[in-house]
């Protein structure tokens, strides 16, 4: 299989009045099509910065990113970032509108996603009338509507309560697997990283470098609940925990 994305020796320094901060140092990894990668690391280690660089929001870095020019990247944030003055439906098609890709085919897909997430009856509601979980689902529909090749998830579940968090991450997992999307998930929840991904990249504290890369070999590929019951689940958890722990001390 070809690599969808190749990250070679990425480094980034921040400049502030009080001096220079090395945020990321020599990070390299590759992602194959259909792969799900999680990035974990201590808070403030530059995980989000890395996503900003990959999504081309941030051009100010050293190193090289090799990817197809037509690669469609979508970015999902921690906050649902719904516009309060638009209906749920208008919010969901916002990305398509901005990218000028509104047509029957894309709209059909949006409608399909609304049905899939049982949100069809709320299409004309406004964000303030929806629960946190529902809002995050709308944000997910908005992201998926663009049919991205690569999905960047920046702690997309961390603002939710535990119950919604599990439900929605399972939703995301199922649709991602079903549509064979490639995903980079940034999280500081180890359980989420293990149950969600094929590979977990552990970053050190600043300047952040790759501490370890762990391949997760689970037989189940359907649901994160089932994956959590796998035999080696706790071993993976412990390995990552130790990697993080050494960094903190």
């Amino acid at each position: 299989m070809n690599n969808l994305l190749e990250i070679n020796n990425i480094s980034k320094n921040y400049h502030t009045k009080n001096g220079e901060i090395e945020a990321i140092k020599n990070i390299s990894f590759k992602i194959k099509k259909g792969e799900i990668i999680s990035i974990v690391g201590p808070s403030g280690c530059g995980k989000s910065t890395l996503l900003s660089i990959i999504s081309e929001l941030d051009h100010d870095y050293f190193g090289k990113i090799i990817k197809d020019n037509n690669l469609k990247i979508a970015y999902m944030l921690q906050s649902d970032a719904l516009l309060p003055w638009l209906t749920i439906y208008e919010n969901a098609i916002l990305g398509l509108k901005i990218k000028k890709r509104l047509d029957n085919e894309t709209l059909d897909y949006v409608n399909y996603l609304f049905d899939f997430y049982n949100l069809s009856e709320f299409k004309e509601s406004y964000p303030k009338n929806l629960s946190g979980g529902m809002r995050q689902r709308v944000a997910l529909i908005r992201t998926l509507a663009l049919k991205p090749d690569l999905l960047l998830l920046d702690e997309p579940f961390s603002a939710l309560d535990q119950q919604s968090r599990l439900l929605i991450s399972d939703d995301v997992y199922k649709i991602v697997k079903k549509e064979k999307k490639t995903v980079i998930l940034v999280t500081h929840n180890i359980e989420e990283a293990v149950s969600f991904s094929d590979r977990v990249i552990v970053l050190s504290k600043r300047p952040s470098q790759i501490k370890n890369i762990i391949n997760i070999n689970f037989t189940n590929q359907e649901s994160i609940y089932e994956r959590r019951k796998e035999k080696y689940y706790h071993q993976y958890f412990d390995t990552i925990w130790k990697d993080l722990d050494i960094n903190e001390s």
Binding site: S55, L57, Y75, S79, A81, L83, L94, G95
Partner: peptide
């Protein structure tokens, strides 16, 4: 956050 979203949407 929404500003960032708009930027990611190009």
């Amino acid at each position: 956050y929404i500003l960032k979203l708009f930027k990611t949407l190009g």
